[in-house]
Design a protein around this nucleic acid. Structure first.
Length: 412
DNA sequence: TCTGGGGTCCTAGGACCC
DNA sequence: TCTGGGGTCCTAGGACCC
């Protein structure tokens, strides 16, 4: 919104062009890529799911499966009630084969290989790319395009390339900020393309339910509702002082987003700040030995991953989830960063002692306060951390707090 | 609500320092 | 001693995101 003059001299640099790319039902799309017979069929991809079993949760449900009422994140056992497996329906005279679907376990390695192809396209179409997750990314294309450009054609090209070169579909949103672009990409899913001009952002957002605003989850949304804030438009018009009082900094943040104000730059994702492994028991258990075994395995796992990624850690912690769903965390910091799998196990087990008598449904082990060794550990995760940062040149790192330390002293 | 796993950021209180 | 102000780090919990 031009018009209220910014500081003289400080040019309000032309509106950015931010693009959000969101793959449609990505896991399901990948499964269909290698198993074309699944196309057009109701398909559920479950994590923790094994063929023929009924445990696990829905990671992705195809649109066809959603029509039967299968919902993301629900238990596979629930999904099976509304959408039986094809194979079983075929055998059971009481079931209708046309009212059944396919179930597949999550295969992240494969999905990542597909995602890598998509990301290659994204990087070729933009100089700045932030990969948010396996199936989502922001692009800043301001230096290639402007709001005078034909942005629809650009968005269309992105989608076409992904479709033709990789074989999956994406929805694309283009707007002057990350939060608006994200909402735009979601607006016409699947296979959509929505461009929201800078002057239209507020109007575009106003009618949306308040939880569509980035940063508003179920808890905040219901509190908003009690205050009479139902839509993004309501939120945009709410009193910032009150929001600040009730919700702290985040209240102001979502208020700004609802108003279409979001100047967060699109930045490539940096190194992780923590690494975590967790896993749930099929059924809550109080058995001390089971719990110790699990923590031992998780500790080994997370330590292995840390060393694979070249991360030293200074804090070791556990997470214990007790019924109904109470999350407890415990952590202990060390005098300095280490890479020591035995120590991870030892500390984790020690922290677990406090919960020796508790029934537990889920356990986790985490390492944090990470420091990365300079070695170019051919990062498995697809990021090319080409800049070792040791060029002792940037004396002023205004960038808030991200990886403050540059010299990690000499270990080893 | 009866659900998985991997993350980030914010807040609040306590310890400790000057 | 109560009066003041400022800051950091650590742990635990909470909310949120994908």
């Amino acid at each position: 919104m031009p018009r209220d003059g910014t500081l003289p001299g400080v040019s309000d640099d032309a509106e950015r062009v931010v693009c959000h790319v969101d793959m449609d039902c990505f896991y399901a799309a990948c499964e269909r890529l290698r198993e074309p017979a699944l196309r057009g069929e109701p398909l559920v991809v479950g994590m923790g799911y094994e063929p023929g079993e009924s445990h696990g949760a829905v990671a992705t449900a195809s649109y066809e499966a959603r029509e039967f009422g299968v919902e993301s994140a629900e238990a596979i056992s629930e999904a099976l009630k509304v959408l039986p497996r094809k194979v079983e329906a075929a055998k059971d005279p009481d079931l209708d084969v046309t009212e059944a679907g396919f179930y597949r376990p999550v295969d992240l390695d494969y999905y990542e290989s597909v995602a890598a192809e998509v990301k290659e396209i994204l990087h070729s179409e933009a100089d700045t790319v932030r990969e948010v997750s396996i199936d989502e990314a922001y692009l800043d294309v301001t230096d290639r395009l402007s709001w005078d450009s034909d942005l629809r054609t650009f968005g269309q090209r992105l989608r076409t390339r992904i479709d033709e070169e990789v074989g999956v579909t994406a929805s694309v949103g283009i707007a002057p900020s990350m939060s608006a672009a994200k909402i735009a990409s979601d607006h016409d899913k699947p296979d959509g393309l929505v461009v929201v001009e800078p002057d239209d952002v507020r109007e575009f957002m106003a009618p949306l339910a308040v939880e569509e605003v980035h940063g508003v989850g179920p808890v905040t949304a219901s509190e908003f509702r009690e205050m009479g804030i139902e839509t993004a438009g309501d939120l945009a018009g709410a009193d910032p002082t009150e929001l600040r009082e009730r919700f702290g900094e985040r209240g102001l943040e979502v208020h700004r987003y609802a108003r279409g104000e979001d100047d967060r730059p699109v930045e490539p994702k940096g190194k992780p700040k923590s690494l975590n492994r967790e896993s749930a028991f099929t059924e809550a258990t109080a058995d001390a030995e089971q719990k110790r075994e699990r923590v031992t395995a998780l500790a080994a796992d997370v330590a292995e991953r840390a060393s694979r990624e070249g991360a030293l850690y200074q804090t070791i912690g556990i997470k214990v989830v007790t019924p109904p769903f109470d999350v407890h965390t415990r952590a202990r910091s060390l005098p300095g960063p280490v890479e020591d799998a035995d120590l991870v196990e030892e500390v984790a087990l020690d922290l677990l002692k406090e919960f020796a008598d508790e029934r537990v449904r889920k356990l986790g082990v985490r390492v944090s306060k990470l420091q990365f060794t300079d070695g170019q550990q051919a990062s498995l995760d697809g990021f090319d951390e080409t800049a070792p940062t040791t060029t002792d040149e940037d004396s002023e790192s205004t960038r808030s707090d991200s990886d403050g330390q540059q010299s990690l002293g000499d270990f080893t």
